[in-house]
């Protein structure tokens, strides 16, 4: 690796102050599983690396008034081990488990996965299906926005060079919402998703879909929702046919590419199947959730 200087941030506010001082010739080091790999291959190293890994206030998982708060520095392993997450949103555990391997999950962070912003990110779909919001801190203070607005394109987010992703919040109304995540890769371990899908839904007493949310990964420049499939399901009776049809609609809403991993048509077929299966699995999880969770 080429030489660079390292500065350490004590906490989030210190990190923001240092960013204001050092931007734009600074890169933020969190888990390092993407950043250090980039440095090894890049022709130019940054002048300064801001190491935020000791900023304790950026870590942890907790329940707040707004909902389930996951610090940007929480590792994928932290998420898998969090009793709060395991109990209220096991789909997030499943999604974290599909990322890399043990060693990379022990280092890699949720915030890093979102900031790197590759279209196949495995953290994205479940959070999008749960309408997660993110907090961004910069010189002008903090702002909150929906995760879908945080993503701009492949490897591009709304973050400015002097801004920092602080946390991810799953709104209170969706904590405990039955959700499922599925990923299709070419291997079980250390594989990028050809397609990954998450669905969340409530079921009302008449056995119809309430607030179904479907998120698709690796089939568009960023993780996307499938609003037409969601609208089709809203209020509809829960049947295998309805779930299959939602899968077909979702496949038409994506813009998959053909590459050396799979053709666009194969990815579309996968969207239809994975969407149906995540809907079925989320429905199967309904019984696990305490009644009254829905509005």
């Amino acid at each position: 690796m080429r030489g660079f200087k390292v500065v350490e941030a004590r906490d989030a506010n210190h990190a923001v102050a240092l960013l204001a001082e050092l931007a734009p010739s600074v890169k933020v080091l969190a888990g390092g599983t993407d950043l250090l790999v980039d440095f090894k291959h890049a022709p130019h190293a940054p002048e300064v690396v801001l190491d935020i890994t000791r900023a304790e206030d950026l870590k942890g998982v907790s329940m707040t008034d707004a909902g389930l708060r996951i610090g940007a520095l929480a590792t994928h392993t932290d998420i898998m081990r969090s009793p709060l997450v395991r109990e209220s949103l096991p789909a997030l555990v499943d999604a974290a488990h599909t990322i890399g391997a043990v060693q990379t999950r022990n280092l890699g962070t949720l915030g890093g996965n979102l900031v790197t912003c590759v279209p196949s990110m495995d953290s994205g779909p479940t959070l999008v299906a749960l309408e997660a919001r993110v907090t961004v801190a910069g010189p002008g203070g903090r702002r909150e926005l929906p995760l879908t607005e945080f993503f701009v394109g492949p490897r591009k987010t709304v973050l400015k060079p002097d801004e920092l992703l602080v946390d991810i919040i799953i709104p209170k109304k969706n904590v405990g919402k039955p959700t499922d995540f599925l990923k299709f890769g070419l291997r079980k371990g250390q594989a990028l998703a050809l397609v990954n899908v998450a669905s969340s839904l409530w079921v009302d007493p008449k056995k119809t879909f309430v607030e179904p949310r479907i998120a698709l990964g690796a089939v568009a420049p960023t993780v996307i929702r499938a609003p037409e499939a969601e609208a089709y399901l809203e209020g509809k009776k829960i049947t295998p046919e309805a779930m299959s049809e939602a899968g077909r609609i979702a496949a038409g809403e994506a813009r998959p590419i053909s590459d050396f991993r799979a053709s666009a048509q194969y990815r579309r077929d996968l969207i239809a199947v994975l969407t149906r299966r995540t809907l079925e699995n989320a429905c199967a999880r309904v019984q696990d959730v305490r009644p009254g969770g829905s509005k």
């Binding site: 390292v6 080091l29 888990g31 390092g32 599983t33 250090l36 790999v37 690396v49 190491d51 392993t77 890399g100 391997a101 043990v102 060693q103 990379t104 022990n106 280092l107 250390q190």
Partner: peptide
């Protein structure tokens, strides 16, 4: 960080030593 040949434990957790400063 793909091959794991550099795996060591830091505070008891396995990590790729090539991916830490």
């Amino acid at each position: 960080g793909d091959c794991g040949a550099c795996t060591v434990l830091v505070d008891g957790m396995s990590v790729n030593a090539c991916l830490m400063l």
